[in-house]
Design a protein around this nucleic acid. Sequence first.
RNA 1: GCACCCGUAGCUCAAUGGAUAGAGCAGCUGACUUCUAAUCAGCAGGCUGCAGGUUCGAGUCCUGCCGGGUGCGCCA
Length: 636
Amino acid sequence: MRSLQKKIKNEIYALLKDKYDFKQTELSFSQPAERKFGDLSTTLAFALAKKTKSKPFLVAEDMAARLTGQLKAVEDIRVAGGGFLNLYLRRDNFLKYQWQNLEKPLPAKGEKVIVEHTSINPNKSAHIGHLRNSCLGDILARSCRFLGYEVEVQNYIDDTGIQIADVVWGLLHYQKKSLDEIKKISNLAAYLWDLYAEVNQLFAANDDLARQRRDVHKKIEEKIDPEYESCRYIAEEVLLDHIRTMEQIGIHYDLLARESDVIALDFFKAAAAEMTARNVMTRSADPAKKDCLVIHYDRENIEKIIVRSNDTITYVGKDIAYNLWKFNLLPRDFCYRIFHTYADGHAIYMTQSEPAPPAPPFGRGDKVYNVIDVRQSYLQNLIAQVLAQLGHSAPSANFIHFSYEMVALTPACVREMNLKLEAGEENKPYIEVSGRKGRAVKADELIAKLVEKSLCEIQVRNPALAAAEALPLARTIAVAALRYFMVKFNLNTVIAFDFKEALNFEGDSGPYLQYTMVRLNSILKKSSGADLRAASVPGSLQCLEAREKELYWEMILNLSLLELAVEFALQNHELSSLAAYAYGLCQKFNHYYHLFPVLAEKDADVRNLRLSLMLIFKNKVEKLLAVMGIAIPDRM
RNA sequence: GCACCCGUAGCUCAAUGGAUAGAGCAGCUGACUUCUAAUCAGCAGGCUGCAGGUUCGAGUCCUGCCGGGUGCGCCA
């Protein structure tokens, strides 16, 4: 549809440019609200009427007169609604064109996109908030790949921060465990979940303990054992746990970038040199920030500390250096080693400071997406500002904070999990998730619940199915439910999490999409080879009765929008539109399915045409679901 | 205080400035001897927070109010 629209635009522009004064970019098409308004609609007449000070309807009428019969792919042109110009395509030609272009992959863009997502502190299990991040990041990466970009997925590991010192203190000094004892703890990440919440309560109540924690943090930074080696062990164990959690739902990474390596390899020094030379980073004149190096954040007129008075670097400072590296703007690089290999053979690399054999060329992105929740907007904007101030205008424009709202818990959900509410929280619309307070739904726990529910549903429908067969199906369905749930909301919608909604497998849900495809595949499985061969040459829509013809055409038209739909989602930062698109297609399919049987149809022409639709639907929607990371089970 | 986001059906959410504001859930009526009922068809449910403005056209843009959320650390 994309190339067809372009062709039609070219034709229209050539035919109208002498009569009307406009640029070709002003001509855009949208999908009409209703079938009767045609297949492509443009509001060009409204804009041109303003310029020529005439009535939109008259302009549209004149345009229609000039265009009628002149556009190759267009059967009819009509004016409606006071100035809409509605185009009606030549359906049989369009159907043939769709069919011929079904298998053509999109051409490579020749640009590299780096997507950073997940980036969970390696000090406890992942929770639902992290799942939103990872699902969005993964679908973003898949969308870019689908459109022909080279994509590299990075996961930033803060293995030096104070939050990991929290649990190191908790294990070594509070619980008095040795490293050997720590190594014996099974499911360490989940164990630390509780410990992290517990020690944070202690720190809040006791300044002396909070000071002890700072000492631990210092020892980690200065590589003093046992704090340092325990920290290394914990970070790696918990990281493996996160990777396992995400692997369950089909999320893979290419590179794990460690903060400790950003520090060890002096990335910041290189960045600081440039920022100082360009006067972007300066010594603060504020007595309260004596001896600090700061950057002025113009948008909100704030002075942000980058280097503390004790010469240590703040989080943003390190992030600036890391992001400069992503664009290949630092005279520094990491060393790399393989950290983990997935079942499909794909390797995740991890950065390291020690020299290592050559690795793939990481970084060097043309475009960078940072999937980080909206609460870090100001820091992300600051980084974009710094890039611009350093003279990197293209990277600054291609530095994209892929911002989304947080996941919170409904008060009902908090009660359901027997978690404590603080004073005044009872009346809040939602409760912020907090690892520090141990108040969140663990990712693994939610996934387990989804699998359990899928399994129940499968067993009800397929009582004879062996558990060994049912479990993989249940996992596939659980993943679809979770991913769909995480992507169906707008990015700036706070998800107030509720088990009942997340566990919904009916209607607007991932399993609904899967069920649609299972039905479709079942038809194809039962079709004869002769029928399938015949269907590969789509016939004419003329053999269908009116009602079916309209529905059929509507589906073909909608299916043809796949590439445009993914492009739209990416451009507008609305991955939820992919979910809506998929859901709408499947609704139409199910509607059609109930009205028009394929296998039982006696008329061979009609049967073949229906089967053609099945094949086109399968091709397009499988690709769409793959972009969303939703697999199609053999049965449900 | 300053900055950003949100307010749409009972609930949870959709809706490129475009044509009659749509879905799911919950409720009610129907449809399995049929290509899988995790489905489908139908009913009911709305002054899109309030008041102005811009526009051929506003849920969407602008201004002001009201209500809610988040950010503004020498935390990360």
